[in-house]
């Protein structure tokens, strides 16, 4: 069992410890508490083995889903996505031919196709949803996971950056756009002949990679890793004001 009902004794101990200040060596043996963000149920949790999952048995939310070598995989896949996003933005995406007339567009042409009046807002939204936010999100994941995987202390502001990456998840719509491409192809098929450019295949590949990479991403494990990596930091280098007890062992 990865999750257990919270033990009152452990609980009062932890509460006292966090209120009073930090006593890392004392706290080292006590299991952590984890709360379900969806239904507020509390569990005591021990360190999971690779591959273990913890599901809230109250509401069914997956709280922990560890995978062997997840960090390294997410890092590699994120770098691949970042390269593909940049390359796909500038190469020809789709081309069309009808009665001797042709047109070739890149991903950025697609995203900026709303030009008249207020529709410019839709262009801005489209650029963000299919290029900007996905790129920002994988860059943030690389920034957070990179130093940890290299055995270094976390990058400055890693917490804020990782929280941002998590918040961006629903707004990064690469796979939705891929299905949109399929629909568009059918819509013009009777009007003209379409050809895929290299960027189309890059985009299709990156949509799949994003989905695969997200299956490896366990937010709880990354927070634990950030916290553990934080303890590698030599004693006084950061002058940043960090509130409360920092040295809590995970």
């Amino acid at each position: 069992m990865l999750l257990l009902p919270p033990d009152r004794r452990i609980l009062s101990y932890l509460v006292k410890e966090t209120l009073v200040g930090n006593a890392p060596e004392q706290n080292a043996a006590a299991p952590d508490l984890i709360g379900c963000p969806m239904c507020d149920e509390v569990y005591a949790v021990r360190q999971p083995h690779a591959g273990e999952r913890a599901v809230c048995d109250h509401c069914g939310t997956v709280l922990i889903a560890t995978r062997e070598g997840a960090g390294l995989r997410i890092l590699a896949l994120s770098i691949a996505v970042l390269v593909l996003v940049v390359a796909a933005s500038f190469h020809p995406f789709l081309s069309i031919n009808a009665a001797g007339l042709g047109n070739k567009v890149s991903l950025l042409d697609v995203a900026t196709s709303f030009r008249s009046g207020l529709l410019v807002l839709v262009s801005v939204a489209t650029i963000l949803l299919i290029v900007g936010l996905p790129a920002l999100r994988v860059a943030a994941l690389i920034y957070v996971i990179g130093p940890i995987e290299l055995g270094r202390p976390p990058a400055p502001r890693a917490r804020e950056v990782f929280r941002m990456a998590q918040a961006l998840k629903p707004w990064s719509m690469t796979e939705v756009f891929s299905i949109g491409c399929a629909v568009a192809l059918v819509k013009v098929s009777d009007l003209a002949r379409l050809e895929f450019g290299p960027a189309f295949w890059m985009f299709a590949a990156l949509s799949v990679i994003v989905v695969v990479s997200d299956r490896y991403l366990c937010s709880w494990s990354i927070w634990e890793a950030i916290e553990t990596a934080d303890q590698r930091r030599p004693a006084p280098p950061e002058s940043e004001p960090v509130s409360g007890s920092e040295g809590k062992h995970a």
């Binding site: 009808a98 047109n103 697609v110 568009a184």
Partner: peptide
């Protein structure tokens, strides 16, 4: 977005 960028013949 795709159609209005592409279909400009």
């Amino acid at each position: 977005a795709i159609l209005s960028a592409l279909v400009q013949l």
